[in-house]
Design a protein around this nucleic acid. Structure first.
Lengths: 130, 130
DNA sequence: TTGACTGAATTACAAATGTAATTAGACTTT
DNA sequence: AAAGTCTAATTACATTTGTAATTCAGTCAA
């Protein structure tokens, strides 16, 4: 089963950076944060260690420095995280979330158009595989 | 400012029940949980107390029993919670989340159609107000 | 070789969270 | 009125999370 403990907010932030970098040391992850974030080097270090313990990243020693690489794909984490949110906030229903996103946020016209295209494609794909 | 502390997962669960009931005692909220949830009466009690402290619900004494009522609307909590998720997981971009919802989940054809209509409506509304 | 310096590992710690045990107050029944 | 019983309030506590201080191990300049 998927029994990985869920990620905390801070852990997700760090995981995202690591997905971008593909593999990186603590220092590199730390450097990738904008200064405005005001996060401490050792805090990043802690998050990476916890990500490793939770099974989300691998670490191998290069000299005396640990190099981290993602172990779980973004898509998987996204799915699990969004699942959880949808369960808690919408009793498992996806539609209300989409409705909220479309109606209560400022979606640009470009995004709206892109969405329409997505929907069309999906509808067509379904008809084909019938 | 919106400076209410964010809700935890458990707190959201309880808040949702209270939104449904409009106003309720601890016992009523507790009763509204399915048995399968396996949550303790006193746990619900704790969550309600914390929701009150955080400013999400009001409580008034009826005899010696506390009756809770929502103080913050679902829509507001949803907005804040989803904002937070989108920030953490998608760097604030709404589109990737919608894309995920549409592509990586099993959206029914009815939902797809409903979405298209939503999109159309929004597009029209925009053209009018130009 | 000995401090000073650099960078990484280890340890720390308060606050938040999930979960519930314990205590206390009011109502009932002998 | 004492004992038992409900129900609600108070207190407790381990775990997780956010955040970082502290320690330790090489390296370099004096």
């Amino acid at each position: 089963m998927t029994e990985r403990p869920a990620l905390s907010k801070g852990e997700i932030e760090v995981a995202r950076v690591l997905w971008d970098l593909k593999h990186a040391t603590v220092r590199e992850v730390y450097a990738a944060f904008p200064n405005s974030r005001g996060i401490d080097f050792t805090t990043v270090q802690t998050y990476l260690r916890r990500l490793e313990k939770k099974g989300y990243v691998n670490a191998k020693l290069d000299g005396r420095t640990r190099v981290y690489t993602p172990r779980v794909k973004p898509r998987t984490v996204i799915r699990e995280t969004v699942d959880d949110l949808v369960d808690r906030l919408f009793a498992g229903e996806t539609f209300p979330l989409m409705q909220h996103l479309i109606e209560d946020r400022n979606v640009s016209q470009e995004d709206l158009d892109a969405l329409k295209i997505l929907l069309e494609q999906l509808t067509e794909a379904r008809h084909e595989s019938e």
